[in-house]
Computed example of a mutant assay.
Amino acid sequence: MQLHADWQMWLFAFDDVRSEESEAGMHPGLMARTLASYLRILQDPTTQVPEDDAFTAALRDLRHRLEAVASQAQVDRFVTSVLGYWFAQVWEAANRADAAWPTVEEYAAMRVHTGAVPTCLALIDVVGGFELDAAELARHDVKALTTKAVNVVCWANDIHSYEKEAARSNHPVNLPALLHRRDGGGIQEAIDLAARMHDDEVTAYRDLRHRTAAGKKLERYLDGLQSWMRGNLTWSLSTGRYQQTADQT
């Protein structure tokens, strides 16, 4: 659990310092070069890289600790999910550099990765002390449930963080903003539509979960998905991270 919490803190720190509102966050080339060093550490934590900063040192520590408690298959799954997140960071940086606005459909496809949620879901069985078979994770229904859970978490985040992002970013790309650009009307209409999309995805998850046959380990994984959806909502409503205050504006 501590490993998972520390990975969460790495992600939040990276988002604050190296992502959207940073120099690297505006330059895809710089972002790619920064992430190349991290990739080397992620693949082999004994690798020495030129930029041995706090992020590199923390990532090295996390990677060593993961290897100590997870199987090779679980480590590989985590690494793959982080690669998806890092590619999405370069994509976002390219959009900011070019002042490009993705379509709602493009954004929804990439939002699965930009929020880093799959990197956290990849640790559900590691934290739980069990290992879910790769064949079960690859099932069409299980993959669909996983994607729906990610959508629920990320779309809820887009709604909760909209006000802060709109106030602080010159290029706020999120679900309400893109719906507003597509449909026009008032921004509250776009936020309400995003909320309905979120709620519909929750309903779709519940319906599919009811029809999904699962053994004991898969049930624990699916319970983990639901805990993530509920936990994210509870945290988002209580954290000060998305609150607009005088010193944030």
Rank of each mutant, 00 (worst) to 15 (best):
Q2D: 12
L3R: 08
H4F: 12
A5S: 10
Q8M: 09
Q8H: 12
Q8I: 07
L11V: 09
V17Q: 07
S19H: 09
S22N: 07
L30N: 03
R33D: 05
L35T: 04
Y38L: 05
D44T: 00
D44L: 05
P45A: 04
T47D: 02
T47G: 02
T47V: 07
D52H: 14
A54P: 00
F55G: 00
L59H: 00
R60W: 04
D61L: 03
R63M: 03
L66Y: 06
L66A: 03
S71I: 08
R77W: 07
T80S: 08
W91G: 01
A93C: 06
R96P: 02
A97H: 12
A97W: 09
A100S: 12
A100I: 03
T103E: 04
A109S: 10
G115C: 03
G115T: 05
A116H: 04
T119G: 02
V126I: 14
V126Y: 10
V126W: 10
V127M: 12
A134C: 06
A134N: 10
A135M: 13
A135N: 13
E136Q: 15
R139P: 00
H140K: 15
D141G: 07
D141H: 13
A144D: 15
L145Q: 06
L145Y: 14
L145V: 09
V153I: 15
C154F: 08
W155C: 00
A156M: 11
D158K: 06
H160S: 08
A166R: 15
R168E: 08
V173E: 01
L175T: 09
A177E: 07
R181N: 00
R181G: 00
R181M: 02
R182C: 03
D183R: 13
G185I: 10
G185S: 05
G185A: 05
I187Q: 01
E189I: 05
I191C: 01
D192H: 12
A194I: 10
A194F: 07
A194G: 01
H198E: 08
H198W: 11
H198K: 13
H198I: 04
D199R: 13
D199A: 11
D199L: 10
E201K: 13
T203H: 09
R209I: 02
R211T: 13
R211M: 13
A214D: 09
K216F: 10
D223R: 14
W228D: 06
M229G: 02
R230T: 13
G231R: 12
L237C: 07
S238D: 13
Q243W: 09
Q248Y: 07
